[in-house]
Design a protein around this nucleic acid. Structure first.
Lengths: 349, 349
DNA sequence: TTGAAAGCGGTACCAG
DNA sequence: CTGGTACCGCTTTCAA
């Protein structure tokens, strides 16, 4: 790497002191206008840039935040990432992105690696393993070390910090309501990570809605697909759909939504005429499914943007002791063609 | 943030000098074993971690690399990111991830922001805008500043640096060959970014294969879908499929592949019996399409892994002047159900 | 075997 | 208005 121009070089070249150069470049009023101009012009001409590490060392601030993502290949997380990236960039922050691959051990390594002054704070969604085992000591530790931290998506209630989450039970409640409104009577629920707190809440919301709307509650059509490979989905779902009278389904992810659509179609159902599907997470699969699938949007980008704002706000007001906040991101039903139309307005991405 | 333990604190606490502590922690032979043990034990007990910025400032190395991604929501880039992340992590590097959103201006900002000692090198795929306008001055500049840089995917031949790419023309050539082998006679080509160098090469490979295999070459079934919203795909493709005799299609992205499958099915074709489809980039859509789509895998993770290895190797051997390398990632046909079987072995992800 | 001091590239206080 | 200097946290050379 070529040697970079430093403040010292400029000082020598222009026969002024180092501190004069520093002040001139920071546009201090202490420096005479002519001197300032001369120095600034020189700096500009030779593309002087203050050294990042020197500044960070001095200020004990890096203008860098760490983002922990369980798995970048999941569309929802790529969306969250996007939201974070945008806001961070606007506010002049860089982001260091790390992937836990759903493993607690990787998470621990990452926190270890980054808690050495590399970054000013963390935005984290815990790994599956971590969430299931409720194994949060490593998070607790960095909180105790005083790192600002915002948890998103799978934010554990056990931790005391800022959070950005969705109202899972409300989301499924609304989905059931829409299905009821469009004429469904027998609504199934398919989930893929039963042990996750959010899945439990989703199921609760679903059951509560069934109760309130006086719909049939049948445990046999609450289907747990945890740990099953997507290629097996149709095989498993077919007999269930043959055995039970089902005219509506809510799934906790897109892949199972697509699978149930295919199975229903094979069995002669018409979607949405006599079979409706609503899937969680408004991702790319839903848009290209046949028919295009109605989804519950978690608004990943919004979630990310909110998390970044919260974190940066906390970083920049470290002196004040603000109360921890939990921001709720509204979910929305994104109406497409796997459900019948209801009078209300609907939008479509 | 809580004050972190420094070498100075340890020195004071144990009544030794700062340099003794430093050496002890680096396991220097200059220090007596007892002293070393005492210092190391203390450091361990109180979780001493060397300050990142101090080290980086001193060493002029950050063990951090910058990754520029045109758009994280595209599966292929999320895959590349994954590959980079893994290798970087293994080799002890952090990554700062930035998204250009396909804009040259954003790219320039990013390079500006990061060329101040924050990072040791770049891994870049240029934005669409940049690629189309062949506007590479900002890249040229950072190369001249001496930054190690690896370009991937859309690596411009005009730039002198390490590269990781795929053989686009070979990929389509092979796809045509497979279609021919399985009985297709009239093979269409659908592309979405005609001005991209890679698209041009893909088309070339397609045409060359048609010629060599003595298949019909018909400009009217080389369809340019550049800039068209995915919702319009079917509308546009339907009349083309009605007008022309087509029994095989190669598309440069998954979304158009799915659209052509739907259109063909609506028009009464049976896939793969009398209509075959091969789409570029083995992503998530292909796996969930009906039928599951045969794809050309660009092996995003491999591409990322390779790029990271190349970059880190270059960073760590800055003294030696290694020749610039261009690594080719083999593409593969991932056989699924949108093409007929041919005798050769096939695998399926 | 240990320690003092210079230096990495800046900022900021204080003296002149 | 300008400059000298200490300091951020660590490494490394040189002297003791």
């Amino acid at each position: 790497m070529k040697k970079k121009l430093t403040i010292k070089d400029i000082a020598k070249e222009l026969n002024v002191s180092i501190s004069t150069v520093s002040k001139a470049l920071n546009d201090s009023h202490e420096i005479a206008d002519v001197t300032k101009k001369r120095i600034q012009a020189y700096a500009k001409e030779f593309k002087y840039k203050p050294n990042f590490n020197a500044l960070s060392l001095k200020n004990k601030k890096t203008k860098t935040i760490a983002v922990l993502i369980p798995n970048m290949l999941k569309y929802i997380y790529a969306q969250v990432f996007n939201g974070i990236e945008q806001v961070a960039n606007e506010l002049g922050y860089k982001i260091i992105t790390c992937v836990s691959n759903e493993k607690t051990s990787k998470e621990i390594e990452i926190l270890e690696m980054l808690s050495n002054g590399s970054i000013d704070g963390f935005i984290i969604s815990p790994a599956l393993e971590t969430s299931i085992n409720k194994d949060y000591v490593h998070f607790q530790n960095i909180i105790e070390e005083g790192f600002p931290i915002v948890m998103y998506d799978r934010a554990p209630k056990e931790l005391d910090c800022d959070k950005v989450v969705i109202k899972d039970h409300k989301a499924t409640y609304n989905a059931v309501e829409h299905l009821k409104n469009t004429g469904c009577k027998n609504i199934a629920f398919i989930s893929t990570h039963t042990k996750l707190a959010s899945t439990k809440k989703r199921k609760k919301g679903y059951i509560k809605a069934l109760e309130e709307f006086g719909l049939d509650i049948n445990r046999e059509i609450m289907i747990d697909m945890t740990g099953i490979h997507y290629k097996e989905y149709e095989k498993i779902l077919t007999p269930i759909l043959e055995k039970h009278k089902i005219d509506g389904v809510i799934t906790t992810n897109e892949a199972t939504g697509i699978a149930i659509q295919k199975v229903a179609q094979k069995l002669g159902y018409k979607i949405p005429e006599n079979f409706s599907v609503i899937a969680f997470s408004n991702g790319i699969l839903a848009r290209h499914a046949s028919p295009q699938m109605t989804t519950i949007s978690q608004h990943g980008e919004k979630m990310g943007a909110k998390a970044a704002k919260l974190l940066i706000q906390r970083i920049e007001n470290e002196n004040e002791t603000l109360e921890y906040e939990t921001k709720i991101i509204q979910t929305d039903l994104v109406m497409r063609n796997s459900t019948k139309k209801f009078l209300k307005l609907n939008y479509n991405v």
